[in-house]
């Protein structure tokens, strides 16, 4: 095992009957990394997590957690898991629930109570889980996943039901765990929130891993154009546009605005051309392709094949 590789998947495949849910997935995740798993519904994200947890057996391929089989890692409490739309015993309170899970992991119960505070549930801790909202249940789920500071966190759609403020505090907690050297693998449908908050992005499509890299690399690979928006002195737009026509594609020109597109590789050259125009330019706005666009590219490319 390479020192800091937490997860190693090699050609992992899982079939349910005729249906191949996970199809030859190969990837690594290392300590301190936050990996996002994205894909359409039924792309195999949850099944991939089950394989990493050792709850499902692969038909072919191999998965290693901390250089061992997943069952071994789980037995030592090394994996924290938050299932999609997590459920708890409705008649038990938040405190009782976290205490139960803490005992199972062999952790002092008060550490569980402290985690309830971390996720902001201390006020509702004595209420029964039955009375909890979706967001509160999700936070209780996060608290139990964090028990014992596991070196691998698998979070299946952790931010559904969380409002923007809670979502932010959720990513703060995840960041802190990564900072302490834990590997976090999370799946989400909300692409925009992953953009700035994860190190690498793995895109799944019909069970296959179609891309797995940093967003920058994925952008370059997708070859999507860079959008540049210029604000110029009123009335001079057409003149300026003419000067720039050689270096970039003009997509829209009106009285005082010019929209340009260019290849990512030409970015600096185009910017250089723009700056030589001096005071005619009031403002420059650079819009790299959004994650939505990148995702769309990989999703469509694979579907067309």
């Amino acid at each position: 095992m390479t020192d800091n590789l937490t997860v190693q998947c090699r050609g992992l495949s899982k079939r349910y009957g005729e249906h191949t849910v996970v199809d030859g997935v190969t990837f690594d995740a290392s300590a301190g990394e936050c990996l996002a798993l994205v894909g359409h519904n039924g792309a195999g994200k949850t099944t991939l997590m089950k394989l990493m947890l050792g709850l499902a057996r692969a038909n072919s391929g191999d998965v290693q957690i901390f250089g061992n089989n997943p069952g071994e890692a789980r037995r030592h409490g090394g994996i924290g898991f938050l299932p999609e739309s997590v459920m708890f015993e409705a008649t038990m309170s938040g405190r009782e629930t976290i205490a139960f899970f803490a005992r199972l992991k062999g952790i002092p119960v008060r550490e569980g109570y402290a985690l309830l505070e971390t996720v902001g549930l201390e006020e509702a801790a004595r209420q029964r889980v039955k009375t909890y909202s979706k967001g509160m249940r999700q936070r209780l789920g996060l608290a139990q996943a964090l028990l014992g500071a596991p070196q691998l966190l698998l979070l299946d759609e952790p931010t559904t039901g969380l409002d923007p403020a809670l979502r932010r505090s959720f990513y703060d907690i995840v960041r802190a765990r990564c900072h302490d050297g834990a590997t976090v693998i999370l799946s989400s449908h909300i692409l925009t929130e992953l953009e700035a908050r994860t190190d690498r992005i793995a895109i799944m499509n019909h069970g296959k891993l179609v891309a797995c890299d940093t967003l920058d690399v994925l952008r370059r690979e997708a070859g999507l154009a860079l959008n540049i928006r210029l604000k110029v002195k009123p009335g001079t737009a057409s003149v300026v546009a003419e000067k720039l026509a050689g270096s970039a594609n003009l997509s829209k020109v009106n009285d005082q605005q010019i929209h340009l597109t260019c290849d990512l590789g030409d970015k600096l050259k185009v910017l250089n051309d723009i700056t030589t125009l001096g005071s005619e330019i009031h403002d420059v706005e650079i819009l790299p392709p959004t994650f939505d666009e990148v995702y769309g590219y990989f999703h469509n490319r694979e579907s067309q094949q």
Partner: peptide, 13 residues
């Protein structure tokens, strides 16, 4: 059915 077993099985049990 109520989904509590799945989580329990990810514990060292």
């Amino acid at each position: 059915e109520n989904g509590t077993l799945f989580l329990l099985l990810t514990y060292p049990v």
